[in-house]
Amino acid sequence: MARDVQITFDCADPAALSAFWAEVLGYRLAAPPPGFDTWDAALDALGVPPERRNDASAIVDPDGAGPRVFFQRVPEGKSAKNRVHLDVRAAPGLEGDERMAAFEAECERLVALGATRLERHEPAPPLSGGFIVMADPEGNEFCLD
């Protein structure tokens, strides 16, 4: 039996990082619980104090196909390379110069949102079509692949 998965990021600013990844993935912020029009109304009803309202955030695929992505505040910062990272498929079906040009355009868009470009790997057929390594605003590595 296949299982649903959730991808979880430990981070310093869940609201900001979830907004960034929503833009990267074409996701949206998760809706508040049933019966509430806003997260503030839900958190008020649950008695969550203002200083704890950025402890967590989640984004979801608007089509319901992709996994939920959850962001939770942790006290420590990132200290080493990710052991797991996301590959963002930014050029499906493209090859060669056209593929790399699509990556460059997406890289520029994401840098404007707060990402950092780390390195570009040129195509090396037959095993690699090329990719760009980036980091999100909190330093988590990901690839445009």
Results as ranks from 00 to 15, higher is better:
7 I>D: 02
9 F>N: 00
10 D>R: 11
10 D>Q: 09
10 D>H: 11
11 C>S: 04
11 C>K: 03
12 A>Y: 01
13 D>K: 13
16 A>W: 02
18 S>Y: 05
18 S>D: 01
18 S>K: 01
19 A>I: 03
20 F>T: 00
22 A>N: 01
24 V>N: 01
26 G>P: 04
27 Y>D: 02
28 R>A: 12
29 L>E: 15
30 A>R: 15
32 P>G: 09
32 P>D: 00
35 G>N: 09
36 F>Q: 02
36 F>R: 00
41 A>E: 15
43 L>Y: 10
43 L>G: 04
44 D>E: 15
44 D>Q: 10
45 A>W: 05
45 A>S: 12
47 G>C: 05
47 G>K: 03
47 G>I: 00
49 P>A: 10
52 R>Y: 09
55 D>C: 08
55 D>F: 11
56 A>E: 09
58 A>W: 11
61 D>P: 04
63 D>L: 15
64 G>V: 08
64 G>N: 01
64 G>Q: 10
64 G>S: 04
65 A>W: 15
66 G>H: 06
73 R>N: 11
73 R>D: 08
75 P>L: 05
75 P>F: 13
79 S>Y: 12
80 A>N: 11
82 N>G: 07
82 N>I: 07
82 N>P: 04
83 R>V: 12
86 L>C: 02
87 D>V: 03
88 V>W: 05
88 V>H: 00
88 V>C: 02
90 A>F: 06
90 A>V: 06
90 A>D: 07
91 A>V: 04
92 P>H: 11
93 G>C: 09
96 G>R: 07
97 D>Q: 13
101 A>V: 09
101 A>M: 07
103 F>E: 03
106 E>H: 15
107 C>M: 14
111 V>L: 01
112 A>M: 09
112 A>V: 08
113 L>R: 03
118 L>I: 13
122 E>G: 02
127 L>S: 12
128 S>M: 09
129 G>D: 13
130 G>A: 08
132 I>A: 07
132 I>V: 14
133 V>L: 11
133 V>P: 02
134 M>W: 00
134 M>H: 02
135 A>Q: 05
136 D>V: 00
137 P>T: 11
140 N>I: 04
140 N>V: 01
140 N>E: 05
141 E>M: 11
